[in-house]
Design a protein around this nucleic acid. Structure first.
Lengths: 338, 338
DNA sequence: CTGAAAGCGCTTACAG
DNA sequence: CTGAAAGCGCTTACAG
């Protein structure tokens, strides 16, 4: 089989513990010893056994990444969070156990109680997420990407969707728009507790009211032909609208095609503000002024905080919930209404 | 801390080894003993420590899933393989370590030589994939999803893209088409060794030649505005084409919008055959007759074979390379040319 | 600056 | 049908 730390120690003429300390750097050693150990490691192509290390140190250097693939979600959206989480984790020396079990509660319990992971990253957290309770029972810390009713015990990061809505409405209000259509996430998202849906909607409605703007709110759909039908219904409900805010990936991805087929030119006939990430807009070549969700930033913040909590046993203060300020990119898809 | 097997043994009044055998089922035990052990496990909420188990049994029950997020690839495409791999792995009791390091060789070596994984699943394998060599050094078996120049030592699964091309061309030939445009994957895909690109293209060209069909071949683009420009160029090169075969996700996703904007009605003005998976077509509401790539089937076959190879030490015969017959779904997007 | 040894929590021959 | 014990390959006090 492969070389063990014993083989390295023997080859280097030192003890096993010295090799271990050379590996961890937790103790100083002479240059000569270090050199001999390094040579031996190289000669034997030694890599520490992860299971043995985990058993002895009670650290796996693995994070659990818990996600679900949902029918009503536009697949590309979730993927945006996976890469930054993975990259940031590796920067801190952690690998990712990707858990997609449909039994969410069981998956958390299974992987934490067996000590497969040192921490948990929960993606796409819902308002009453069933994963939180089993994760509270776990010894490992957890971090949430998303917003829950009660995030007690966890660090949580999410975009400030209320602020996102205000940015969008303010932008249009400043440009003189008085009648705005808002397309929100589909009904399913509300139903399962995707709080970003109503946090954005409620803030948008409130902000519009403050300006005396008439706002027509409609739920989008995840698939065709529903997407088109929902848009048709929205425009029929407020034909005089001069602006459209789209807070739904599937709808905004289909929007260029939809507007094109209706002969609607942006921003001449309609001003459009989207809500999506830069990567998403890039992948689908979306030409709209947008309030940017920041998956890269959220993923990085979440993992960094998780690492901090692991490395700092008595981390000062309660776990935090942090809402991130959205970005804004003007792509000239809104016009000034006189 | 959490309960160990010793605690369970003590509570059940049996030895540690008996608990272990009760867990693994590798030895029969009396009903009474079994009941007492089960009660103790439940009372203590015992879960075996994964690290200890891995160390003692030399099995982690984890597969490495090695993938890369590429700029030139349409993100949703890769995701289609992740879910079936994950689901099938879980069905066989395996979790997935998702490895996205940009250092592909190092990632393979790091995770296999440390025995973090019992096997490796390589996604998006290229013709001269740099991951194969380090994986050959590994003690764990590996399975490839994709097609490599030399897959010696591995089981490999891929769609039969040659056959996919023949199915598409045959379908159009039978319907009387004599001038066909083929949009292939982007240049980058060829450059990095995405053999599906040329395997499809070469087979399509050859098949067309056999029929005496004129075929105009063009490389697609991954992003706008390149997608549109490539399509414009293709139609300009063969304005009299009556049919279009699209073997590129990004292009086919943008196609409805593109054709709409050009006033082209399918199949009245143009017959279209796509090459994509059912899920992909569904997610993007694609209305085209398609040769179906089968990511679910490939992912499942690959993982099943990996499990088999692990469970059957002296698995008869060499590792196999298997090309899967594509599916075909007629969505009436091709017309009969007289 | 370095070593001998206990211990992490399992699995599995070996014995009866 | 069941148990005592060695061993998997590390880490880390404890000692010098």
């Amino acid at each position: 089989m492969a070389a063990t730390i014993r083989d390295v120690a023997y080859a280097a003429g030192v003890s096993v513990s010295t090799v271990s300390y050379a590996l961890s750097g937790k103790r100083s050693l002479s240059d000569e010893t270090r050199r001999r150990i390094e040579d031996a490691i190289r000669a034997l192509d030694f890599t520490p056994n992860a299971g043995a290390r985990a058993l002895a140190s009670a650290e796996t250097k693995v994070f659990g990444l818990y996600l679900q693939f949902r029918e009503d979600e536009f697949a590309p959206a979730m993927l945006q969070y996976v890469l930054p989480v993975s990259t940031t984790a590796r920067e801190h020396g952690y690998d990712l156990l990707m858990v997609t079990d449909t039994d969410l509660r069981g998956a958390i319990h299974r992987t934490t109680s067996s000590y497969m992971v040192d921490g948990a990253v929960l993606l796409d957290v819902t308002y009453d997420d069933v994963r939180l309770e089993p994760l509270r029972q776990a010894k490992q810390p957890g971090v949430l990407i998303g917003y829950a009713r009660d995030a007690t015990g966890f660090d949580a990061f999410d975009l400030d969707f209320g602020e996102a809505a205000r940015i969008a409405v303010d932008h249009l209000a400043e440009r003189g728009h008085r009648e705005i259509i808002l397309v929100t996430p589909p009904r399913d998202v509300y139903d399962r507790g995707g709080s970003y849906a109503w946090r954005f909607r409620d803030a948008a409605v409130e902000r519009a009211a403050r300006y005396g703007i008439r706002m027509s709110v409609h739920e989008g759909e995840a698939r065709q032909p529903g997407i088109t039908e929902a848009l048709d219904a929205a425009f029929a409900a407020l034909p005089t609208a001069t602006a459209l805010i789209v807070h739904n990936d599937a709808t905004v991805a289909a929007l260029p095609s939809y507007l094109n087929s209706r002969g609607v030119v942006v921003p001449r006939d309609l001003s459009v503000v989207g809500v999506y990430s830069a990567d998403f807009g890039n992948a689908f070549s979306l030409p709209y002024t947008s309030v940017e969700t920041l998956p890269d930033k959220l993923g990085e913040l979440a993992v960094t905080q998780l690492v901090r909590r692991i490395n700092t046993p008595g981390l000062a203060g309660e776990p935090l919930t942090r809402l991130i300020e959205p970005g804004f990119v003007d792509r000239d898809s809104t016009r000034i209404v006189s």
